[in-house]
Design a protein around this nucleic acid. Structure first.
Length: 469
DNA sequence: TCTTCTCCCACATTTGAAGAGA
DNA sequence: ATCTCTTCAAATGTGGGAGAAG
């Protein structure tokens, strides 16, 4: 169900970029268990890795593809008795690096020719990392955000329109060690690099024997207690967050009672709370219960005009992600979203794109992750509300230059408030770009461009002030 | 004491160089 | 001389265990 070839030059499609998540079924399998991604000091690949296909691009225009990790909420979590519980406020924001696909920039025809893999993307918890890996906090929730920018070079990205996409099933919790053993098993089952852990006559077994030499392995016992799911049948039921709405839990076939006293801590981990999303994300589970009718599908099914402006607002209110209006279920393994170019002015410095205004717009301003922490809400990147939005619209686009006017100096980065993360990650002379970007034959990126790239981690972090308050 | 992180291990896959053969 | 194919070693990626750190 891909869009017609752009060669047809259908004017109604020229501006419509569609992105499809490959191996969506695999992602959903992990998502059902609450995906965890290992982060290490030296960087760890994601598994499943991000793999998308694109359509609707202009074949002869150059595009830059990027992905960054957006915090889903403003909380830190802990794995407790088989589920993720909130464990306080999130750590101060880290430099949010953007991984630029090494093939960027490339013509639209190139990107559409085959699926685009972000296999080499690595996650790290090392704030001093200088390899361009994406720096994340352990025990925090993130969701990858893919961006497509029409730009002839990495220099001109900031003047291009961003088409951003996010797939709820790709959200994950960054961990330094797997908390949910079911996730580990699922990874072993599907990741070829982990085949060494399959079967019983593996090193794991021998190691266990070795570890038996040390009697009274408290750690082991603690771990068993840690994941009581081990003792339960392998029903592959996704651990439930305390913050999940009750009706959703019930729909998912949960039997546990809602933990009382946490209702006011409703997590904005939107993908876990959007019933319509669950409708598609938990198909495997729901097949057993067939409670689909219990989901409110109006967002997805009825993109009426009345909801056009309301939905993003409600998304925030309920901590939901808007439903995609153009979800394409291509078999079991692909989901796609279409990004419509918003009807926004493209004049640099356009008011609607200024962070200040975005802030004034409060939680209305984006459709991607409405439950973002405050920091990201003021992010000038999430601002499609100023433009024509479509209900249930996952993808969005925006003019980047609007956020970083040409007269914007580096000074603003230095204005980040006190009390925020003050680690060594913010030397202005160090580009927070991927190694791919840095090694491109474009050479060193201009300062202004660098500053714009820092937007997602730093520039937008004006609200970091809140952390210090 | 508990939770989280880091290091190391053994195993599997991937990659690229080297060599053989056509 | 060139190309293709095979072999092999090194590099890389993986989850788990043990112990350290806080």
């Amino acid at each position: 169900m891909m869009t017609p070839s752009p060669l047809t030059a259908d004017p109604y499609h020229q501006g419509n970029v569609r992105m499809t998540l490959e191996k969506s079924d695999l992602w959903k399998s992990f998502h059902n268990l609450a995906t965890e991604m290992i982060i290490t000091k030296h960087g760890r690949r994601m598994f499943p890795h991000c793999n998308v296909s694109l359509s609707g691009l202009q074949p002869y225009a150059n595009y830059v593809l990027m992905v960054d990790m957006v915090p889903v909420d403003n909380f830190r979590y802990r794995w407790n008795k088989g589920q993720w519980d909130m464990a306080g406020k999130a750590e101060p924001q880290l430099p949010c690096r953007t991984y630029v696909h090494p093939d960027s920039p490339a013509p639209g025809s190139y990107w559409m020719k085959q699926s685009v893999s972000f296999l080499k993307l690595k996650l790290t918890n090392n704030t001093l990392d200088q390899h361009g890996h994406i720096i994340l906090h352990s025990m925090h929730h993130y969701i990858p955000r893919f961006s497509v920018v029409q730009a002839d070079s990495l220099y001109s990205v900031r003047w291009g329109h961003f088409h951003s996409f996010s797939f709820p099933e790709t959200s994950f919790t960054a961990v330094t060690a797997y908390q949910n053993t079911k996730i580990a098993k699922l990874k072993i089952d599907h990741n070829p690099f982990a085949k060494g852990f399959k079967g019983e006559n593996t090193r794991t077994h021998s190691k266990r024997c070795r570890s038996n030499k040390s009697p009274g392995n408290a750690t082991k016992k603690a771990k068993e207690d840690k994941d009581p799911g081990n003792k339960s049948p392998p029903d592959l039921q996704r651990p439930k967050l305390n913050c999940e709405p009750e009706e959703q839990r019930m729909t998912l076939g949960a039997t546990e009672n809602v933990v009382s006293g946490k209702e006011d801590l409703l997590s904005p981990w939107a993908l876990k709370q959007d019933p319509s999303q669950n409708h598609s994300l938990h198909t495997e589970i729901l097949e057993l219960h067939d409670h689909r009718q219990e989901y409110s599908t109006e967002e997805q099914m009825v993109p009426g005009p009345a909801s056009m402006s309301y939905q993003p607002y409600r998304s925030v209110e309920n901590g939901r992600l808007p439903s995609p209006s153009s979800i394409v279920e291509d078999g079991e393994c692909r989901r796609s979203y279409e990004s419509h170019v918003p009807d926004v002015a493209t004049v640099p410095g356009h008011k609607t794109t200024r962070p200040g205004l975005v802030r004034d717009m409060g939680h209305h301003h984006h459709t991607l992750a409405p439950a973002m922490p405050q920091d990201y809400r003021v992010s000038p990147v999430h601002l499609p509300m100023s433009s024509k939005t479509y209900p249930g619209h996952m993808g969005y686009s925006y003019p980047l230059y609007g956020h970083y006017s040409t007269d914007q100096g580096m000074g603003q980065w230095a204005e980040c408030g006190t009390g925020q993360y003050s680690g060594p990650y913010f030397p202005h002379h160090l580009p927070f770009l991927t190694s791919q970007t840095l090694t491109t034959d474009q050479g060193t990126l201009p300062t202004q461009f660098l500053s714009s790239w820092q937007h997602s981690g730093r520039v937008e972090l004006e609200p970091e002030l809140e952390f210090g308050q």
